[in-house]
Design a protein around this nucleic acid. Structure first.
Lengths: 353, 353
DNA sequence: GTTTTGCACTCTATAGAGGACAGTGCTAAA
DNA sequence: TTTAGCACTGTCCTCTATAGAGTGCAAAAC
């Protein structure tokens, strides 16, 4: 397949017609016939001429007929050409930008910001939104804090990696006073802040050993509580996090072959893994990525396209976000939306100003 | 309509047949005919006899024929009788109980616990799970804490109402040291801990006035940061929170009249309000509640039933959880699942031991 | 040589007809 | 009171015919 070079062998007229066809199809969803295109393209060409052109386009693999007497439909390769060379992206109107900005106001905390980015993407594109939060290779403990709740219950607050805040409640043997907890917090922060969590955990075990010898009540409490605090929760799932929203938007996309296929897409664990892999690809190739239909390599995403963009703050890539929808989507709208959402999310997460 | 009294006027035999019919229909989803029921009920009655009985049941409004030559289907009133008087609830097998217990292990923090309860409900019932978290009438500030992030950025952690932890990041004019923040935290906790947030906010404004006069640098910082911290986020949405999961489960429930109706159910704001109202009803009438079809009064929930149970911890009702599914659901399985989930969620949220 | 017209051909979608099927209600017999 | 028999009714499925959309090709027009 001498793939991309083909487009250069095509005349301007062919490309123009091809573009009109793709646009028409994206709008309509029905295969486009020569007659329709003749009127639609406003080029003063008769259907017969257009039939000839379309036959050529089919030969180079940009179009496809579902059957002899249907119109033509773009292939994945066709979409590729369209997206790469023909598409003119619409600038977002200011009200849309304003909406995105409003939703991603930097006041909110990390996790709710990410949640909102996802639901906003799905909302404004009417497709499924997805955000990946890769597990950082290492987790730097920034701050640990204990707050007394009712008797025997202590709230542990961990600040990890500068952004992420984790809470959990632990049950203790005795009831600690606020000042005791204060001391314990101080001690642990002094000892462990700025270090990697796995290291911290190892150190804690060592400390516990030492404690056995010279008994220091308060410090022993501290270490024991730290152990409990770090016990299960913190690094428990090593897998990356994936966050979907707006799955129901895909329900009225007819071409995705009935509801149950798409139901599977979001329910089976394996499918999620596929999507995760795709997004991991996207995070490595920097900048906006568009995966069209089968070319993604995952047949779960057969008739789907995925438009992604990494988001970054403080010059560091934090994750990937994007949308999943039918290959026949409004790329001209979707692309700038994904783009700007990534930028705004990044800005909101940024230390900034 | 002399509604519930009717059931007493029916013979045992009628009720037994009715029960068999409902059970069959719940299993099958197809209208049940006299011939089928004759074999199914094992009562040695001919189809003709059963036809007579079914005609009676239809007269009192428990059954309904979709058309002349279809079998019978229970009405909402029929389900009501079935659920109230005829249903024998299955005890959960231990593996199911274990699964629920595992998911709701009390180690996790508040919000993730609630999230899990919802997704677990949908998972194990194969219906849509829903959890309501009513906004408490008042928010008692339990603890406020500041953690320095990078320069000019401070993480604020608020513990409210004994369970709820809120994080947000604020940008400050100057860079605070850890010990400064420590002091500020201490000061604010001393001043405001245990008080209602709206009160706190009022007090802060008053304090700011006072500050204008006698300038006390550190304390002024404290008050200003507190103001920023409480500014928008904390009580911003006064509405109750509603949490859905497993909506896609409802997609293969054929009788709910196509996908788009149910798509609406979860996407339109208005529909959510309806569900919210329903759940608010459920929280007032204590104990398990079952709303069947149209009797809920909300026609969004036309062919749906909602099974709910409030969950409580420390003797206080915290919210309502439950499932939404077709009227034709396995009440015998769903009811105990909702029941035990509510109990276990309560237990996990409890101060406990 | 390129474009258009005309025409035969192909495939789909839709509507209607007819039969199989399931189930009813009624009447008369057990 | 229950059962058997029977005519009746509505649904669902299959089959067929037809209209419509669109193609490809050959010959004519530009």
């Amino acid at each position: 397949m001498a793939s991309t070079t083909d487009s250069s062998q095509l005349s301007d007229r062919s490309l123009q017609l091809f573009k009109a066809l793709v646009e028409h199809f994206i709008e309509d969803g029905t295969p486009v016939g020569s007659r329709t295109l003749s009127k639609d393209s406003n080029m003063g060409l008769s259907p017969a001429t257009i039939r000839n052109v379309m036959a050529d386009l089919e030969d180079v693999g940009l179009l496809h007929s579902p059957h002899t007497s249907a119109g033509r439909v773009p292939t994945a390769k066709g979409y590729r050409l369209f997206v790469d060379s023909l598409l003119r992206v619409n600038a977002l109107n200011s009200s849309q930008v304003a909406k995105i900005a409003r939703e991603l106001a930097p006041e909110s905390d990390y996790s709710s910001l990410i949640l909102r980015a996802s639901s906003m993407l799905s909302d404004v594109t009417q497709l499924a939104g997805v955000v990946m939060l890769p597990r950082p290779k290492q987790s730097i403990l920034q701050h640990i804090e204990f707050v007394a709740l009712s008797s025997n219950r202590v709230l542990v607050i961990l600040v990890v990696n500068d952004r992420e805040v984790q809470n959990r409640i632990i049950n203790t043997d005795k009831t600690y006073s606020t000042s005791e907890l204060q001391k314990i917090s101080n001690y642990l922060n002094e000892l462990f802040a700025g270090r990697d969590l796995t290291q911290v955990r190892k150190s804690i075990l060592e400390e516990l050993e030492k404690m056995k010898e010279k008994v220091n009540q308060s410090m022993q409490s501290a270490i024991e509580m730290a152990q409990q605090a770090l016990d299960s929760d913190v690094t428990k799932d090593k897998s990356d996090d994936l966050l979907f929203s707006g799955q129901t938007n895909l329900m009225d996309v007819a071409e995705l072959g009935a509801a149950d296929k798409l139901k599977k897409l979001f329910e089976s664990f394996n499918q999620k893994r596929d999507i995760l892999h795709l997004l991991e690809q996207a995070i490595n190739a920097d900048g906006m990525q568009i995966f069209i239909g089968e070319e993604s390599g995952y047949d779960v995403l057969d008739k789907c396209s995925v438009v992604t963009s990494p988001y970054e703050a403080d010059g560091q890539i934090l994750g990937v976000l994007g949308v999943i929808g039918p290959t026949r989507m409004h790329y001209d709208r979707v692309i700038p939306i994904v783009d700007i959402t990534a930028k705004m999310l990044g800005a909101a997460l940024n230390s900034k100003n």
